[in-house]
Amino acid sequence: MNNLVEKMLQGDRRSTARIITLIENDAPEKREILKQIYPYTGRAHVVGITGSPGAGKSSLVDELTREIRGEGLKVGIIAVDPTSPFSGGALLGDRIRMQEHATDRGVFIRSMGTRGNLGGLAEATRDAIRVLDAFGCEVILVETVGVGQSELDIMHHADTTLVVLTPQAGDHIQTIKAGIMEIADIFVINKADLDGTGKMVTDIEAMLDMSTPASGWRPPVLTTIALDHRGIPELWATIKEHRAWRKDNRVETTKEKVRRELAEIIQHQLTHLINRDLDRHYQNLIERVAARQLDPYSAAMEVIKKSWKGGLMQ
C-alpha cells in the first residue's frame, strides 16, 4: 500500500494533507491512491454550503462545527475560493472565521482554489471529500461560493445542500440566480439580525408553494445569526433530519451516484484522448474538412469508427 495512504489510515494529518495536494495537482500517483482509499469511503455525511459572497458561509461552517463537535463527531472542512483568472493565484481566506477549531484534533480544515479547471474542480473536490472520509471524518462540510456551474456541480457530491441567503437587497428572491434554488435541501437565511428577514422567509416559502418537489422533501427555511450561534442547533437538527429522510426514502441511490461519476470520469478521459488523437493522427482529416473536401460529420464518424477499434481504448 502507498506509504501516505497507510499513514493517513493511522490518523496522520500530514499524510492526509499531502494526499489532497497530490489530488489537486493531478499527480501521477493520484489514481493509485484513490483506488486504495476507496474501500474506506462512503461513511461520512457530506454537507454542502453554498450561497452568495459574504452571506456568512464560513461563519456558519464554524458554528456548525462547534455544534457537531459537541456530539463528539470528527469534522472535515473543505473551503473553496475562486482562483484569479489573471494570475492563477488565489487568496484563500475562509479559515479566518474557523480559527476556533484550528488546534482541535477532531477537525481537519483544507482550503482549495478553483484553479479554473472546468469540471475538474468538482472532481478534485469529490476526491478530497473521499480522502477526509477515509481519514475518518464523520461529517464533511464543503463551502463554496455558488457563482459558477462547476462550483454548483460540487453539490452533486453533497448528501445535504444548504443554500445560504441574507435578508439584504442583493439577495432578493427575483435576483437569485436560477440553478442555485433547485439544489437546496435546506434554505438558511443568515444575518437574521438584519431587516427584511421575515419578508425573505415569506418569499422563499411562496416560491416553494409553487413548485412541488419531485422528491417529496420540501426544503425547510431556517433563520440563523451565525455571529451569536442563534439557530445553529436547529440547523444541525434539520441536517440530521434530512439525512434520516434520505436513508428512509433511499433518494438518489448509490447506484445513480456511481453511474454519474463513471460517466464523468469516462467523458473526461475520452475528451482528453480525442484531443490527443486529433492532434497526433488526424491532421490530414482536419485539412480535408478545412478544404471542404469532406464534411465534419463524415470526418467525425471516420474518427469514431477507427478509434473504437482500439485507438481510443489506450
Binding site: 484563500l92 481566506g93 479559515r95 479566518i96 480559527q99 484550528a102 488546534t103 480544515i109 482550503s111
Partner: peptide
C-alpha cells in the same frame, strides 16, 4: 495560493494550519 488566517494566531494554530493546508 495564499492561505491567510487573520490576526492573533498562536504558534500552535499556525503550525496546525500549515500542516493541514
Amino acid at each position: 495560493e495564499v492561505i491567510y488566517t487573520g490576526l492573533h494566531q498562536t504558534p500552535e494554530q499556525i503550525v496546525e494550519a500549515a500542516i493541514q493546508e
